[in-house]
Write a protein that binds this DNA or RNA. Structure first.
Length: 413
DNA sequence: ACTTTCGGCTT
DNA sequence: AAGCCGAAAGT
């Protein structure tokens, strides 16, 4: 409350000076009409500037409240706009009032939540609404009090926004005179609406996602797919290998292993072979990978998994061809010629194999393959070699190990 | 939610 | 030093 009265300040206004503890002086201005204080001249001026236009409406009220129908909300809901002014600045806060219990909500989101909760609590939403998947799922049901029907925020927004008279009056910053207030309100509403819309949209989306079991299910499915695929793949591969390889399956595995593990391969492979013969159709790799493999019921699956883990895709592809597999295996010595002969003879002479391995397809297919037959014949008859086929091993092994097996060897070693 | 106070920047 | 503004604190 202090002396001089600036020219720019209305006569009835008061000028006060506040001295801070620090000694700093702050001059503030008091509006007698509402005892409102302004820390600076600009604030006062702004206020006055607005006040001139706005004064009529404001007059007594610090806070103006404009009530209207919340079109977006179920009928009965009240949309209240509270206009607060500080200094020259005007604030407009939207507020939604529940006609039933008079609860106030600062945003449509809150209202939505409230309605949703209320709705969910009271009664489950009729699935009738489900027709509109994209729409506000819970919203419809939500409005216990008023018709939830009209609760389409988006539509309303669209409608309302255009109606807004966005007059140029807004030029004065936030402070909007009465007229501008309207526009300002509209603006705010629009903004809030826009936000709400976005949020709602987001929510809707989320709700869709969330609500829609399908999404969850899809997620799950996706997960399921993702998880199982591994196993399935392995199994399927194994199956595929069986189907395609049949006779060559053993060789395939042995070969792969041999490539991978190098020296050890041979030993392993031999073991595998024995086992294979014993087990007839069981895969040798299973033994090799036995330590790792316990997942799949069948040894084949185990083998496949191992393959997946250890073998490069390229190698896999290469060995997919049973002919190549068999040939390589035979050449490398993974398969003793005796075994080869057995195998060769097997289909013809020993029906036991076929019988024992019900799951394993008939070896006839393999023999049907000219490649396979050619390879076998070539290896067995045309090329002179000793029973053990040591020559072959030596001659072919080196190149193989050097070239194709390098990566594997390194890994193994 | 609103008001008051304080710190800091600009003039 | 005064003025102004925004943030923080208080009610």
């Amino acid at each position: 409350m202090d002396g001089e009265h600036p020219e720019w300040l209305p006569v009835d206004w008061k000028v006060c000076v506040r001295v801070r503890v620090s000694g700093k002086k702050d001059k503030y201005y008091v509006n007698p009409s509402n005892d409102r204080k302004f820390n600076s001249k600009p604030e006062v001026l702004r206020y006055l500037q607005n006040a001139e236009k706005d004064l009529k409406l404001r007059k007594l009220n610090k806070v103006d409240t404009e009530k209207g129908v919340a079109e977006r909300l179920p009928s009965g809901w009240i949309k209240e706009t509270r206009i607060t002014r500080k200094g020259g600045k005007t604030r407009r806060n939207l507020c939604y009032i529940d006609p039933v219990d008079g609860r106030h909500f600062s945003s449509l989101q809150e209202v939505k939540r409230y309605l949703e909760t209320k709705n969910s609590g009271k009664a489950e939403c009729n699935e009738d609404d489900s027709d509109h998947p994209s729409e506000e799922l819970g919203d419809h049901c939500i409005s216990p009090t008023a018709g939830a029907e009209g609760f389409k925020l988006i539509d309303e927004k669209v409608d309302e926004t255009p109606s807004g008279n966005v007059k140029s009056g807004a030029a004065v910053e936030n402070i909007n005179p009465p007229e501008t207030d309207a526009s300002g309100q509209i603006r705010k509403e629009d903004d809030s609406k826009a936000e709400d819309q976005q949020q709602e949209k987001k929510r809707k989306k989320h709700s869709k996602w969330m609500n829609g079991l399908p999404r969850r299910s899809s997620k799950r499915l996706a997960r399921v797919e993702a998880d199982p695929p591994l196993e399935v793949k392995s199994c399927s591969r194994a199956a595929g290998a069986r189907l395609s390889d049949k006779a060559g399956f053993d060789t395939k595995e042995a070969i792969e292993k041999s490539k991978l593990s190098g020296k050890t391969e041979v030993i392993i492979t031999s073991e595998n072979f024995d086992k294979q013969e014993k087990a007839s159709t069981s895969s040798p790799l299973g033994d090799l990978s036995s330590a790792e493999d316990h997942e799949c019921a069948s040894a084949d699956l185990k083998e496949d998994e191992k393959n997946d883990k250890n073998i490069n895709s390229s190698l896999n592809n290469l060995f997919m061809d049973p002919c190549i597999e068999f040939a390589i295996k035979t050449l490398t010595g993974a398969i003793p010629l005796q075994d080869v002969n057995k195998i060769l003879d097997g289909p013809v002479a020993s029906p036991a194999q076929a019988s024992t391995s019900s799951s394993v397809p008939p070896s006839s297919d393999i023999w049907a393959d000219p490649c396979f037959e050619f390879a076998v014949k070539t290896l067995t008859s045309e090329i002179p070699m000793e029973d053990d086929g040591s020559h072959f091993q030596i001659s072919f092994k080196q190149p193989l190990s050097s070239s194709g097996a390098t990566g594997c060897n390194t890994t193994v070693k």
